[in-house]
């Protein structure tokens, strides 16, 4: 398992280096000068020059790349051009909203999808299966902002049991903060849970038709025992892959939901930074998100190793 982990770790580091080069090159290679781009077309020559100096754009490219990387490694992400505060500070603040929201939504997704998927697979073709499949179809087809608005209408306006938006901050207490994140998390989770339910169901159905399930039944296991003891773990690999992808998506892709609920999250931050041409902010946040995605994938691959002994030993 140690060797397996080390090999995964090696590809993780390689991926990070490549990603940082690509992001850096994108910002460098966009046509025109970043400073004049950030200031807009009406900017004066000396203001542009001052900004170039401030951003260190007059240094050679390799030096800039390394100072960017070493800066990030020591927690210095540069200073935001629009906010005039360190990027790291803003990002950390936003991360405290986006990360719990993503985890919350992912937990809900798993809590819905696992039982629903297993239930549907074990009663294939029944009314239960058909209803679960119908519900997931709806969950995938309906956009999550519509769920969000519906949830606000029912739970915040009619019944008044959840706030309709905003985030009080963690200083107000854990439960108050979680309370505020509940509706957004549900709205984010419903489509993801629908996808994951279908993956869980089809993966489990594939596994249930395997020869070793028949072997288990011939040993005297009931249908349920065969499913729990033999099918479930084998069905988990594709499910884990999807969970990894979903987490990355939930972390960065919640822009619309963050807007519906007025949440100060990462998605809104990137969106604003792009529209305000705050390249330093964009560069750093994108790198951070890439980092998160790669780390999540790394963790998912480690769990493959836990599930599948062959992966663990063979490589």
């Amino acid at each position: 398992m140690l060797r397996f982990t080390l090999l995964r770790l090696r590809s993780l580091i390689l991926a990070l280096i490549v990603a940082s080069l690509v992001i850096f090159a994108m910002i460098e290679l966009v046509p025109g000068d970043p400073a004049s781009f950030m200031l807009g077309i009406n900017a004066r020559e000396d203001t542009i020059n001052a900004l170039r100096e401030e951003l260190g754009l007059n240094q050679p490219m390799i030096q800039r790349y390394f100072s960017w990387i070493t800066g990030m490694l020591t927690g210095d992400f540069g200073t935001s051009y629009t906010y005039r505060t360190p990027v790291a500070e803003i990002v950390v603040e936003r991360l405290w909203v986006s990360l719990p929201l993503a985890l919350y939504a992912l937990t809900l997704t798993i809590l819905i999808a696992f039982p629903a998927g297993i239930w549907a697979a074990s009663r294939r073709g029944s009314l239960t299966d058909l209803s679960v499949m119908g519900a997931t179809q709806l969950g995938i087809a309906v956009p999550n902002f519509w769920f969000a608005m519906l949830a606000v209408l029912i739970f915040a306006i009619t019944w008044r049991i959840f706030p309709s938006g905003g985030f009080p901050g963690w200083d107000e207490g854990f439960w108050t903060a979680m309370h505020a994140l509940t509706l957004p998390a549900v709205a984010l989770a419903l489509p993801q849970a629908s996808i994951l339910t279908r993956i869980m169901r089809s993966s489990l159905l594939d596994t249930l038709s395997e020869d070793y399930i028949r072997t288990a039944r011939a040993k005297g296991l009931t249908r349920g025992q065969a499913l729990r003891r033999h099918a479930l773990r084998n069905a988990l690999i594709p499910v884990l892959t999807i969970i990894g992808l979903q987490f990355s998506f939930l972390l960065a892709g919640a822009i619309i939901i963050e807007n519906v609920f007025f949440l100060p999250g990462l998605g809104r931050l990137v969106f604003q930074a792009i529209s305000q041409r705050d390249l330093i902010m964009v560069e750093s946040v994108v790198m951070l998100l890439v980092f998160a995605v790669i780390v999540v994938n790394f963790l998912v691959e480690l769990t493959y190793g836990l599930v599948d002994p062959q992966l663990r030993r063979a490589r």
Binding site: E210, D211, Y212, T215, A218, R233, N234, D308, P309, Q310
Partner: peptide, 13 residues
């Protein structure tokens, strides 16, 4: 009971 295909008759994990 013993089956035809030993390669897939056992749970791989």
């Amino acid at each position: 009971m013993v089956f035809q295909e030993p390669m897939t008759a056992l749970n791989p994990v």
